[in-house]
Computed example of a mutant assay.
Amino acid sequence: MTFDADNACDQLPLWKQSPVFTGTTKFDKLEGTCNILVTGGAGFIASWLVRHLVLQYPEYNVVCLDNLDYCATLNNLKCLQGTTFQFVKGDITVPRDVSSTLEKFAIDTVFHLAALSHVDRSFGGDSFEFTAVNAYGTHVLLECCKSYGKVKKFIHVSTDEVYGEINANDDDLLESAILAPTNPYAASKAAADMLANSYYKSFKMPIVIVRCNNVYGPHQFPEKIIPKFVCLLESGRKCLIHGDGSNTRRYLYAGDAIDALDTILHKGTIGQIYNIGTADEISNLDLCKQLLDCFGYSATQHEAFIQHTQDRPFNDCRYAIDATRLKKLGWAQKTPFDQGIQITVDWYRTFGLTWWGDISDILTAFPVGPLANIRTM
């Protein structure tokens, strides 16, 4: 769903020029739910969730805890000025930040989305940070909530990557599948999942675990493949593809992911795990070609904007999860990939190069394409 914002013009702040994106679901108020904490709320998926909860449910008080690292921006939340929404700058790895927020706002429900999520960075010099934020940060949050003792539902948002890769002919994985992560990012998220489950088992904390396919859409920092490629193409640069580009991923539009989280909040069962999955699967190479189509480039021009580079140390061939359990709660995917990708491309072509400030350092490392002076709309 898109709430109309002011018409774009040069005099308006950037955040006022953008459409305001949310999900589409709306449920009756959940008894006992009043004050909801969303960690990482200035980031991508979490900011979609914050906007959705604030605008769809004015009866809830929504609080965001975020340390505003490089991939977060208050531009994602400024449209909520004048509402009851509260922003707290704080770090989930710092117990006093978490505890003081829980107490001050009398939090009864937690959505935990704060995480480092860029797989490429987890292979490099930042790998310790992934463990610190994703595993230790989750542990801090769980322990603070346990000590606080007033949280009635704790929804821990994870990833399909914790299951590891599966082959082309394998069945979609159920929530009962073993965790077999193959990269440092996925391993840190699997550790967080296990911590969350241990607090449910050991301390009877009201935990729900959610594992989602790749989510895409407006407001995602341009380090992930879709926003990065759109921003590169908008700058007249080439897209670098790991290996031969045959690795596939399943992509779910952010609005559908938020509908799923909303459904789980209002209808999900404590102690349960829910996969949020889609059948929209595409290889990295074909994804790049589809984005080039969105820019108006013909098939004969595609190769001029594609360059292959050395693959990751290990690159899962594919992920695939079964969302039957979630669908039984009434959730359904509403946004076809072709529709969602066009919305996403249109937003990034207008806002992507400036939404997070100067992102030139991300783009200048990529080679310039031969058609750099040709602009298509």
Results as ranks from 00 to 15, higher is better:
155 I>V: 14
155 I>R: 10
155 I>E: 06
155 I>N: 12
155 I>M: 14
156 H>V: 06
156 H>F: 15
156 H>M: 14
157 V>A: 07
157 V>K: 02
157 V>E: 00
158 S>A: 11
158 S>V: 14
158 S>C: 14
158 S>W: 11
158 S>H: 09
159 T>C: 04
159 T>N: 00
159 T>F: 01
160 D>C: 15
161 E>A: 15
161 E>V: 14
161 E>D: 09
161 E>M: 13
161 E>H: 09
161 E>S: 14
161 E>W: 05
162 V>A: 06
162 V>R: 01
162 V>Y: 01
163 Y>D: 04
163 Y>T: 08
164 G>M: 10
164 G>V: 13
164 G>N: 10
165 E>D: 11
165 E>K: 13
165 E>M: 15
166 I>P: 05
166 I>M: 03
166 I>L: 07
166 I>R: 12
167 N>S: 10
168 A>Y: 10
168 A>L: 09
169 N>V: 13
169 N>Y: 15
169 N>G: 04
169 N>P: 02
169 N>H: 10
170 D>K: 00
170 D>M: 03
170 D>Q: 02
170 D>W: 00
170 D>I: 00
170 D>C: 00
170 D>A: 02
170 D>L: 00
170 D>R: 00
171 D>I: 03
171 D>V: 03
171 D>F: 08
172 D>Q: 03
172 D>R: 08
172 D>V: 02
172 D>F: 04
172 D>W: 03
173 L>V: 05
173 L>G: 06
173 L>R: 13
173 L>P: 05
173 L>E: 04
173 L>F: 00
173 L>I: 03
174 L>Q: 07
174 L>C: 05
174 L>Y: 02
175 E>P: 01
175 E>V: 05
175 E>F: 02
175 E>S: 07
175 E>G: 03
176 S>I: 10
176 S>E: 04
176 S>K: 03
176 S>W: 04
176 S>H: 01
177 A>Q: 08
177 A>E: 05
177 A>S: 11
177 A>I: 09
178 I>M: 08
178 I>A: 14
178 I>L: 11
179 L>Q: 06
179 L>E: 09
179 L>D: 02
180 A>R: 10
180 A>C: 11
180 A>E: 06
180 A>Q: 09
181 P>T: 10
181 P>A: 08
181 P>K: 04
182 T>D: 11
182 T>H: 14
182 T>M: 14
182 T>R: 15
182 T>F: 09
182 T>C: 11
182 T>I: 12
183 N>M: 15
183 N>K: 14
183 N>G: 12
184 P>C: 00
184 P>K: 00
184 P>G: 01
184 P>R: 00
185 Y>G: 01
185 Y>K: 05
185 Y>V: 15
185 Y>S: 09
186 A>Q: 12
186 A>D: 05
186 A>S: 14
187 A>W: 02
187 A>M: 14
187 A>S: 14
187 A>P: 02
187 A>K: 13
188 S>H: 11
188 S>L: 11
188 S>D: 12
188 S>C: 11
